[in-house]
């Protein structure tokens, strides 16, 4: 590559950089024109930064070990008593929308009006505050507006959190992630397993699945509708745990005469009274609740 350099090295050093040097007024002066001691970014400054970074990282690690990230109970859409709470950095907006004149009939002002103006102003700050002066005390309007918004945001956040704590206290509610941790600690102290909220409920299975009555169920084509494992399919109910719902007599009655207008057919012609009795006896033993 033609750099017009004479060197034995294969690395050809170009000028300072490929960025075009121009006298365009937008380009700030090189740092060498600033008075004082400047320092090379690599390696001098970066090395110091890395050392500070390592200290910060270790501190962060210690924090995460000392304070486990919170986790509540699995989401339950039917839970009506849960108090919704966004993460802390949304609290100012959350609290703001609770005030009259920015909620209910005026929600438009709350969601669009005020935040749009505030965030819009923040986004376009350089085009609103166009003076040459940079020092904050020499541009009182910009600085005081920012200061005010800052105080307002902090105030709203604190109020929101306070309000939340107040509701918790009034309802006697412990936040789920704290309660969960407490329970885990209690269980650990008692030497028990940590309560598990993730396991689905123990799948019930047939009691005495090898009983000869199962053969009757197969022969009589019970399995055709109630499925091979008798757990039901489609609208056909499961027979596992049917003993909790119906007594032996009731079961015999259903098998003999059917029900639901023949959705469950009558078996009095296909099975003998003895077989029906045997089947009903077996089905009446199918209890889940007993455990």
């Amino acid at each position: 590559m033609a750099h017009g350099h004479h060197s034995n090295e294969k690395v050809v050093y170009v000028g300072d950089s490929r960025v075009k040097k121009s006298n365009h007024p937008n380009i700030p002066p090189d740092y060498t024109s600033f008075p004082g001691k400047s320092e090379a970014f690599i390696p001098n400054f970066l090395l110091k930064e890395w050392m500070v970074g390592c200290v910060v990282l270790v501190g962060f690690l210690v924090w995460t070990i000392a304070e486990p990230a919170p986790l509540g109970y699995p989401a339950d859409p039917t839970n009506a008593s849960f108090i919704p709470m966004p993460d802390w950095y949304f609290l100012f907006l959350y609290q703001f929308l609770k005030y009259p004149y920015v909620s209910q009939d005026y929600i438009l002002l709350g969601t669009m009006g005020v935040p749009a103006v505030m965030f819009g102003a923040l986004l376009l700050a350089p085009f609103l505050d166009t003076g040459k002066e940079r020092r904050f005390y020499r541009r009182p309007i910009a600085s005081s507006l920012m200061g005010l918004s800052l105080i307002a945001s902090i105030y709203l956040t604190v109020i929101s959190w306070d309000h939340y704590q107040h509701i918790l206290e009034a309802n006697g509610t412990i936040p789920e992630h704290i309660e969960r941790e407490e329970k885990a600690r209690e269980a650990a102290e008692k030497g028990e397993e940590r309560p598990n909220y993730t396991q689905p409920k123990e799948e019930a299975s047939l009691v005495e699945a090898n009983d000869p009555a199962m053969d009757i169920a197969k022969q009589a084509q019970c399995v055709g509708c109630h499925a091979a494992d008798l757990k039901g399919q489609g609208t056909t109910p499961s027979l596992v745990g049917v003993g909790d719902r119906l007594s032996k007599e009731e079961l015999a009655e259903v098998i003999t005469n059917g029900r639901n207008n023949g959705a469950m057919p009558s078996f009095k012609d296909k099975l003998s009274a003895e077989e029906i009795d045997q089947l009903a006896t077996w089905l009446s033993k199918q209890k889940v609740a007993a455990e």
Binding site: K10, V12, D16, V19, Y31, F34, S38, E39, A40, F41
Partner: peptide
């Protein structure tokens, strides 16, 4: 480095990315 630089001329690129000074007024060491 030379082998790669010969083919891709990465020195200017590297200088753009990394070779700059940290002025005194932003350096907490000063």
């Amino acid at each position: 480095y030379n082998w790669i630089d010969e083919r891709l001329d990465i020195t200017p690129l590297w200088r753009d990315v990394a070779d700059h000074e940290v002025p005194e007024h932003v350096n907490p060491a000063h």
